[in-house]
Amino acid sequence: MKRLVPLWIAIIAGFAMLLSAFLPATESLGETFGDVFNVVAAIAFVLGAGSLAKINLAKVSRKDQGWGYAVVTLVCFAITLLAGLGKIGVHPNPNFAALPWSGDKESEGGLFAWIYEYGLVPITATMFALLAFYVASAAFRAFRAKNVEAVLLLSTAFIVLLGRTFAGVVLTGWLPDWASGLRLENLSVYIMQVFNTAGNRAIIIGIALGVAATSLRILLGVDRSWMGSGDAK
């Protein structure tokens, strides 16, 4: 029962989506399943938030190493949740002004929008920006022209790095028109349209074959590894 029911749920849901792509009569079935999926996906956010709270509360109660940071996480979590679910500082939708809860949770002036602008944006954006430094350090230490393959990789990186900035124009802009294909900015476009396209297309086709095969195994009940250990074939 614990494994049979999920197996059949997966098979029925999968075939409903599959059929809806081929039979117009079943289009609305696929649409309904899709809509249910969307709501379950939104509830998964609640699960994620609950799981985070549970783990951090346990850390605090056990006084694990670094539990103070778990307190920071929990406090920030609680404030954001309160600001968002409570729509603190949000005015009603002017079309329904009598309803205080009708306003947009993210509207300017609300606490939720303040958290977004001054908390979420700076941290997430700076975290991604940090990678610029690490990629520079990695390039200095790891990019070695050891063999033909590495030379190809390095040369391409050089052409792209120079060709996608004004450096390309300065370095090779003097080339005559008949040799304009060798200008770095044109060369970088050519690399993207030909060699990169071929390489990535092969990867895309390979992935498509893999995804189709795996999906089919799930739909036919052959692959049950997603249910955890024991039933994997």
Partner: peptide, 9 residues
């Protein structure tokens, strides 16, 4: 929410 399923709907 729902990623590709939103596109499907």
């Amino acid at each position: 929410a729902g990623n590709e399923a939103v596109m499907k709907v």
